[in-house]
């Protein structure tokens, strides 16, 4: 297994900068997931590390060795492509054995390894099947087995679970996690789905426009997004500009309570939907904030209520099923300081 160390990596396409001085380290045996919207440069990062994309500036170290002059096929990294790129003219076993064959592994040894890997990915006995006859999930598993077969020092996955349905995805995330733990593989994955990244990774790295916006454990990132961009990307829509003044912040909605110890000054304020409390509206000028329910979205164990606030932008609240107000109802809105996060100004 090998560590990956990327410093100042820059890749330009014509006038557009796809990667802008990216620094990233993946320790031996660690699973890091790069998370970002499409076009943020995450696939380019994988391709640059794999040696498929020429680099304009910066260095890539694999196991401490600069690989600038090493062509893709000698880097010893595995890459699982987003759309698998299985070789259509070979059967499943032929695909999985490809990396072994080009390395000159003997036929018998290769066959044994293929059998082992197909069992590992949950497709025992599928070796003779044609690639075209596989479902999306099966193709994904074959692609994974193919990438794992040469025992790459670093395994890279591009949207590994992108095209799968939800149930399969959740099961596969758990399987992959266990598999990587067992094999001790160093893994660098990219995805646009934060739940996938959180479930898979020891550490997540969030990219925006070719730069790294935040890096940390899933819990760190979820609890303390580094910027309004990261917060919005993680699905939090209650982000407003404001000014912190001791125990509360001035925002377009009105005053929002802050957790104790929040430093004062201009900032952005994030309120998690679970921290938005709805109640009976009091008198018209009772001093509290009010809003009108614009829409309700049923989410299984709770309901997300979209509020037209009396002042300021819309807000989202997560309510228990029973107490969710109807569309058009006027409600009092309160915020729970424990679910409020002070972010740097936008």
């Amino acid at each position: 297994m090998a560590s990956l160390d990327v410093t100042g990596l820059t890749v330009r396409f014509g006038g557009h900068t796809a990667l802008d001085g990216v620094d990233l380290a993946v320790a031996e045996g660690e699973t890091v997931c790069v998370l970002g919207p499409s076009g943020s440069g995450k696939s380019t990062l994988l391709r640059a590390v794999a040696g498929l994309r020429p680099v304009d500036a910066g260095r890539v170290l694999l196991a401490g060795r600069d690989v600038a002059r090493v062509p893709a096929h000698r880097r010893g990294v595995g890459l699982m492509f987003q759309d698998h790129q299985l070789f259509p003219q070979r059967d499943v076993a032929g695909n999985v054995a490809f990396g072994l064959r080009v390395r000159g592994v003997g036929k018998a040894a290769a066959r044994e390894r293929v059998t082992e890997l197909l069992e590992l990915v949950g497709l025992p006995g599928a070796g003779r099947r044609a690639v075209a006859s596989l479902s999306g999930g099966e193709q994904q598993r074959v692609a994974l087995a193919r990438a794992l077969a040469p025992e790459p020092g670093l395994l890279m996955l591009d949207e590994p679970l992108g095209q799968l349905d939800r149930g399969l995805r959740e099961r596969l995330v758990v399987e992959l996690r266990q598999l990587f733990d067992r094999l001790g593989t160093t893994v660098l994955a990219v995805t646009h789905d934060h739940s996938e990244a959180f479930a898979l990774a020891d550490r997540v790295v969030i990219m925006a426009e070719g730069r790294i916006a935040q890096s940390g454990t899933p819990v760190q990132v979820w609890e303390r997004p580094a910027s309004p961009f990261v917060a919005r990307f993680l699905g939090f829509d209650n982000v407003v500009p404001g000014t912190a003044r001791g125990a509360a912040a001035d925002t377009p909605w009105g005053p929002v309570p802050l957790p104790p110890g929040t430093p004062p000054g201009p900032c952005s304020v994030l309120v998690r939907p679970a921290g938005v409390r709805l109640g009976e509206p009091r008198d018209a000028d009772g001093g509290g904030l009010t809003g009108t329910v614009a829409a309700r979205t049923f989410r299984g164990d709770h309901v997300v209520v979209l509020l037209d606030m009396a002042r300021g932008p819309r807000a989202e609240a997560a309510c228990p099923l029973r107490s969710a107000p109807e569309v058009g109802e006027r409600v009092a809105v309160g915020f729970d300081a424990a679910d409020v996060v002070r972010l740097p100004p936008a």
């Binding site: 391709r47 096929h73 880097r75 010893g76 990294v77 595995g78 890459l79 070789f87 080009v102």
Partner: peptide
């Protein structure tokens, strides 16, 4: 590219 990352020379 898939062949290259699996170790095949051009």
């Amino acid at each position: 590219e898939a062949a290259a990352v699996l170790g095949a020379s051009p």
